[in-house]
Design a protein around this nucleic acid. Structure first.
Length: 285
DNA sequence: AATGAGCGA
């Protein structure tokens, strides 16, 4: 499975897309091959399942209607020439199948990635990195959905009134931490526990991010290059939506430069990232 | 397309 990229490297013709299924569980598997902007062959596997939802409201309405007396023309109609017409209304939803993953697979993914990063084999990097980032992201989304972690960038008190709002000074551990207080992110070379001075000089700008990329996604993406002091995703002041670019401040300049050389032009989330050293932030008067 | 927040003594 890991070798498909190598096998196809020199071939002109791409394999045809295939669609298999639905299998016993209704899962349809679609495999497509395409070339990215660098001419590398990419494989995309999509698994979808059609889920039929019976609308509960229909049941309720039907039960209510059963108790009504007919009137007008309908009171005398026979079944054959009904004056009422009905349209079946079935809602079909597609949803992406989540893949199960064992601890060993996770560990393997991480070590594949580490060795790919150490070497210079670009296609190996792209293969294992893309895979690992996607899995990590899905894990986070699942945890967020289960309520085990806060959804990204949404303070708990936005869930609406009535809840037990965390008051200032309650100091509850494990809750949502505002970005301004998230100081130590990823990386291995912790430079002491003290508050660190921000290092704007090693600030990397990444743009053309998709709107739903979070700080955690970027920590996964940039963390392997070295310790990071701060990650900042630019957001719209009132809507909170990502503006599609971010800054990653590395502690060591050489890590910033390596990240740029490896990740500039990297395809992430269907977009081609642009990664470069950031211009210094304008001074505040 | 695009270059980040806070700041109250």
């Amino acid at each position: 499975m890991a070798k498909w990229g190598d096998l196809l490297e020199d071939e002109e013709e791409l394999p045809p897309s295939t669609t298999t299924g639905p299998d016993a569980k209704g899962v349809v598997t679609k495999v497509e091959y395409y070339r990215n902007e660098k001419g590398e062959v990419m494989k995309k596997t999509t698994k979808t399942r059609v889920v039929k939802i019976e609308k509960k409201v229909y049941k309720v309405a039907q039960e209510r209607r059963a108790g009504w007396k007919k009137f007008g023309e309908a009171a005398t109609e026979r079944a054959a020439d009904s004056v009422t017409s009905q349209t079946p209304d079935e809602v079909q939803l597609e949803r992406i199948q989540r893949q199960k993953q064992t601890q060993e697979e996770k560990a393997k993914g991480a070590s594949d990635f580490a060795s790919a990063m150490a070497g210079s084999d670009k296609s190996a990097i792209v293969g294992s990195l893309r895979d690992m980032l996607y899995k990590k992201r899905m894990e986070r989304q699942l945890l967020a959905a289960k309520g085990l972690i806060a959804a990204p960038e949404r303070p708990p008190d936005e869930d609406g009134p009535g809840g037990s709002l965390p008051t200032a000074g309650s100091g509850k551990p494990g809750g949502w931490v505002p970005p301004s207080l998230r100081n130590r992110i990823g990386g291995a070379g912790g430079e002491g526990e003290m508050m660190q001075k921000r290092r704007d000089e090693n600030s990397v700008r990444v743009s053309n991010l998709s709107e739903d990329v979070t700080e955690d996604d970027l920590a996964d993406l940039f963390g392997p290059f070295g310790p990071i002091q701060r990650i900042f995703v630019a957001k719209d002041r009132e809507t909170g939506e990502s503006r599609g670019f971010a800054f990653i401040n590395f502690i060591h300049r050489e890590d910033a430069l390596r990240a740029i050389s490896k990740l500039d032009g990297f395809g992430y989330d269907n977009l081609i990232l642009s990664v470069s050293m950031a211009a210094p932030r304008p001074e505040r008067q």
